[in-house]
Amino acid sequence: MMKMKRLVLLTGLVGLAAAASVASAETLRLLTWSDLAPEALVQKFRQETGIEVQVTLSNNEDIISRLRATGGAGFDLAQPSHDRIVGPQADFRIYKPLDLSRVKLSQFTPGLLEATKASTTIAGKVYALPFTWGTLGVLTNHAKAPKVSSIADLCADAYKGRVAMRIRRPALMLMAFAHGDDPFAAYGEPDKYQAIIDRAGQRLAACKAHVKAYWNNSDDLLNMMRSGEIVATEGWDSHAFKLQGEGMDIGYDKNPLGWINTFVLPAKGRADGAAYQWIDFVMRPENAALIMQSSSNMTASVGAQDVAPEKLRQSLQRIYSPQAIASIRWFPQIPAGLELREGKVLDRVAAQ
């Protein structure tokens, strides 16, 4: 009888230990962009920490939509752009402030760190840290479209049927700037801003007859540029880097729009500890360099560029000279309600 009791007790202890092990195994639910969480890094993180990472690929609009629908639940770490923090937080309360004492801030490039903190501080609390950064503008096959310098040039008869773009917010902003308007400066003046985006929308609509295709994913854009089907397009700097790396002579916008992808904590995330560990992990230079390679984006990690592949470093240096960096128009925080106005304008463009 005593042996039987000891066996039952031992079995129970083993079961409790197994249950405790399962309970302690954390999962980080990450809502991020394509190529910012490569599988090699996910595996490396799991090996180092024991934490599983569930990656859901998204974009700015989808990130906000998902978190809005759940009140900030369903994910433990998200990566919207820096201009999508203050407005959505004011409207929907979908984020929670960061505890900076739990992050190795020395791993962040000081200028980007301070700029991001300043633009995402609400009531004295910081809501975001910088991760990757880059720009969007117009890229060209320089040999076939040497005179294209802005999105307005995509509407020239000389390139009719050989250009691509998207009916999205970036194209609206680029078109406004190309015709001498400054939409960012009008953020605080709703009527003036409406007039600017109305004019830009009309120009995008008038340009539709010149557009070969409206691209939906990077592979489509890259393949059209490679084949010569198009000679110029609205796109990201990462597209230019990839095509340059393949030996194409690619020109890029001299006045692009700049963005910073961030780290934010969803309001109802349940694995903050795992989130902070992932942030520290991916900001280590050797890991951030792998993200640079997979995404062709710059990172806010100190030293990452020094250990990135030589070909990528050369492309970065070619596009981002000190003068080019000084010419970037960084997206400011979007005030509440502005994107609804833009959405109506873009809907009209799409319907025409």
Rank of each mutant, 00 (worst) to 15 (best):
R226Q: 08
K147I: 06
Q202C: 10
A143E: 15
G337D: 07
D237M: 03
H210L: 09
K3H: 15
N297H: 15
P80Y: 06
A156I: 08
L312G: 04
E342Q: 08
I63F: 05
Q43S: 15
L77N: 00
K192D: 14
W330V: 04
A19V: 11
D237F: 08
L28H: 05
A19T: 06
M248E: 05
R166D: 00
I51V: 15
L113A: 04
T116K: 01
A118E: 07
I260H: 03
Q293W: 09
N141K: 09
N261K: 13
Q54C: 08
Q244V: 12
A308R: 01
T135M: 07
A118G: 05
L77I: 05
D157R: 13
F131V: 05
S149Y: 04
R66H: 08
A158Y: 11
P285C: 07
I250V: 15
K254V: 12
F177K: 07
G87A: 11
A213N: 07
A25R: 14
W215G: 02
R6K: 13
T132A: 02
P266Q: 07
D219E: 15
L243Q: 01
Q244G: 15
V148G: 03
M224A: 10
P190T: 06
T132Y: 02
A267R: 13
Q194K: 15
S321V: 05
A213F: 12
K208T: 08
Y193A: 07
E342S: 04
A213I: 11
D153F: 07
A240C: 06
I325Y: 11
L67F: 06
R29D: 06
A118K: 12
F108Y: 04
V307N: 11
G258E: 09
G12A: 14
Y252Q: 04
S119Q: 00
K125I: 04
A300D: 03
E246Q: 09
R226E: 04
R93F: 12
L105T: 04
G201E: 01
L41H: 03
F263V: 03
G74L: 01
A19E: 09
A18I: 12
L340N: 13
E48H: 02
V163G: 00
L221K: 02
K147N: 14
V42N: 06
V302Y: 03
A308V: 07
I196W: 01
T109L: 11
R6E: 14
D76A: 00
H239M: 11
